[in-house]
């Protein structure tokens, strides 16, 4: 048992940290591509895609106009007025951690607080000196550290479970959005799913690397990088830790412990079953984007139901 307010704080502490890490991973795709295709990488559409995955493209357009490397990087990393910038995510994670200090270990608190302290004086000039890629690496390293300290020190109680819940719902959401937006960019409807060219190798390679799946792909498929398999890896493979299936494995386990008879557990179970029993051919029979959008809508409904079942008690 845990106070609903604190459960909410733990859920969002984990969610915001995971979101920060995913923003960094998403930016990496663009940053990596600037290295081998300067002209292509300057294409505003590519930078807009980065904003579509991690933020609000309407708001971005209203404030900055056309998307370019400098504006998007600063918007997604530094912008204190953009609620989905890495800076704001870490600040919110810290606010949530601070409100629940009695329920997390000192080490977990110190890890969250240290990240926040280190980004306090980050400016555009400093970011430029340091390099955006290096900054994204730093974000990932800090988030790995934070998860390690949470796993290594926290009692396996409801506080821990709510932080796991936040983490995996957020991760699944990000993987689905990233796939949806990037896939659509690279592969307009009707293009070949099972073929590969040099351009694809670099594009899909950048995506796989950003979700730490490049060598996993090689090991599993021992073949060229083709779009269908990338989708399979990131949606259906449960041994791939950032896939939708792997995330839903964790979510259903946690909900089974927190409230096996609750409506949210049923919704999670249904979502999980679909990922468990669907073949990639079925995913593409309709369209990938409609599959992913349906998935995202169901995941949203699940999030709302979790809030109703645990967090809005009266």
């Amino acid at each position: 048992m845990i106070l609903s307010r604190l459960a909410d704080n733990l859920f969002w502490m984990a969610r915001y940290c995971e979101r920060a890490e995913n923003i960094a991973r998403n930016l990496e795709i663009n940053l990596r591509m600037t290295l081998w295709d300067r002209a292509g990488a300057d294409d505003p559409e590519w930078w807009e895609a980065a904003v579509r995955v991690s933020g609000d493209p309407e708001e971005f357009k209203a404030r900055h106009g056309a998307a370019g490397q400098k504006t998007v990087v600063e918007h997604l990393i530094l912008d204190r007025d953009n609620p989905s910038s890495i800076w704001c995510c870490f600040e919110r994670a810290r606010d949530n951690a601070r409100a629940t200090r009695g329920k997390i270990t000192v080490e977990t608190w110190e890890a969250v607080n240290a990240i926040w302290l280190e980004i306090q004086d980050l400016t555009a000039a400093k970011l430029q000196r340091q390099g955006a890629r290096e900054f994204c690496d730093w974000v990932k390293a800090r988030c790995h550290g934070l998860r390690g300290v949470t796993d290594g020190t926290m009692l396996r109680d409801d506080a821990y479970r709510f932080s796991r819940l936040g983490l995996f719902l957020e991760r699944a959401d990000n993987t689905a959005r990233l796939l949806d937006v990037r896939y659509h960019m690279l592969l307009p409807e009707g293009a070949a799913l099972r073929e590969s060219g040099a351009v694809d190798y670099y594009h899909w390679g950048a995506i796989l690397r950003a979700v730490s799946a490049f060598s996993a792909y090689r090991r599993i498929y021992r073949d060229q990088i083709v779009p269908l398999r990338v989708a399979e890896l990131l949606i259906l493979r449960q041994d791939m830790p950032r896939s939708l299936h792997a995330c839903m494995n964790e979510v259903t386990t946690v909900l089974g412990e927190l409230g096996p008879g609750l409506e949210c557990a049923r919704l999670a179970g249904a979502l999980h079953a679909e990922l468990h029993f669907t073949r990639i051919e079925d995913v593409f029979r309709d369209r990938l984007s409609s599959f992913l959008n349906r998935h995202l809508a169901q995941a949203n409904a699940l999030g709302a139901r979790i809030a109703k079942d645990f967090l809005m008690v009266a």
Partner: peptide, 18 residues
């Protein structure tokens, strides 16, 4: 905000209900 009254008794809002 964690507490509420119902029928002249006090409850706290928890993940397992009141």
């Amino acid at each position: 905000q964690d507490l509420f009254a119902r029928e002249a008794a006090i409850y706290m809002r928890t993940s397992e209900g009141p």
